[in-house]
Structure formats: structure tokens, C-alpha cells
């Protein structure tokens, strides 16, 4: 479904950690930086808060890609929250592969509060990547009965 007539517009869910990536996004905004609007941001206190269930739930609700963004290693406001996120995402990517979902649809990025440019670049690039992958069609639930 293309809303602005430019073909498939991927829907991306972004879990941004409050201290780094969320501020980075804010900085990008404040600095009037251009970036793809496809990213739907959900603020969490730390990337460690992102439960794999949320990611699966996002895909199940029709997201074409999920971005989890946290602080650079060592910069985490809670010292090691981002490390836990890294562990979960690595295992989850392996499971997504078994579920037949391209693991590139799930992306983990480190974006500090100062990297407004980087945030803009990541979200734009991710959007183009998903546009190439096309929509994620999962078996509709009502298929059986």
C-alpha cells in the first residue's frame, strides 16, 4: 500500500534509548536534519529494556523492520544495558532466520546523543534497505478455521 505514490513505504518500529539515541534523534531534529519519516519511535529507558517479545509483537503487528538503538558500548547510562540488548538481538536474529524472516529486518545500532547526523543516516539507510526487501507478509491468523 503506497500512501504517497512512491511505491512500498516500509513501516519501521524504532526502540530508542532515552539517554543516547533518543537524544540523538532529538538533536537531528533540532539541527533540522532531513531523514526518512518511516521510523515510528518508541522511547525506552535503555536498550536493555527491549524484550524480544516486543520485537516479535512488532513483526506480528505488521512492521516491516525493527530498529533497536542504544548508547555506544561503555557509554550506557546504566553501564551495561546495551550489552544485554546485544546478547538478545544476536540470539533473536538467529531465531528469525529459522522463522523465515530476513534477519536484516532487525537492526541494532549504537547512536550517541551527539550523533544527530548518524541517526538521520541510519534511519534513511534502513528505510531504503527495507524498501528493497519489500513488505513482510506473515501468514494471516484467520487462515485456518
Amino acid at each position: 500500500m503506497s500512501r504517497n505514490g512512491r511505491g512500498f513505504e516500509p513501516r519501521i518500529v524504532g526502540f530508542l534509548c532515552n539517554w543516547c539515541s533518543y537524544s540523538g534523534a532529538d538533536l537531528a531534529g533540532v539541527s533540522r536534519m532531513k531523514s526518512a519519516p518511516n521510523l515510528r519511535i518508541i522511547r525506552v529507558m535503555c536498550s536493555g529494556r527491549v524484550d524480544p517479545s516486543f520485537i516479535l509483537r512488532a513483526f506480528q503487528l505488521g512492521a516491516d523492520g525493527v530498529l533497536v538503538a542504544g548508547c555506544h558500548p561503555g557509554d550506557c547510562h546504566y553501564q551495561e544495558g546495551n550489552a544485554k540488548a546485544l546478547r538478545r538481538v544476536l540470539l533473536l536474529k538467529r531465531m528469525l532466520r529459522d522463522f523465515g524472516i530476513d534477519e536484516h529486518r532487525l537492526r541494532l545500532e549504537w547512536i550517541s546523543a551527539a550523533e544527530g547526523e548518524r541517526f538521520a543516516a541510519v534511519s534513511t539507510e534502513f528505510t531504503e534497505q527495507l524498501r528493497a526487501l519489500g513488505p513482510l507478509v506473515l501468514a494471516r491468523r484467520a487462515e485456518v478455521a
Binding site: 518508541i42 529507558m45 535503555c46 529494556r49 527491549v50 516486543f54 512488532a58 547510562h77 544485554k84
Partner: peptide, 30 residues
């Protein structure tokens, strides 16, 4: 400090994180 890492990891869902409960985030997702 409320980072929520333990909430995400609690296997039996016995840990909740005020302000960022599973229900709230799921609602946001929807």
C-alpha cells in the same frame, strides 16, 4: 535506576517496570 533490563529478562514475568510496563509498550506498539 529504572533501566528495565531485568524486566525484559524475567522469564516468568514476575518483574514489572513502572512507566514502561509490558502492557504499556505493547499498547504503544499497537
Amino acid at each position: 535506576k529504572g533501566c528495565g533490563t531485568c524486566v525484559a529478562a524475567c522469564p516468568s514475568g514476575a518483574m514489572t517496570g513502572y512507566g514502561f510496563t509490558d502492557r504499556q509498550i505493547n499498547a504503544e506498539l499497537e
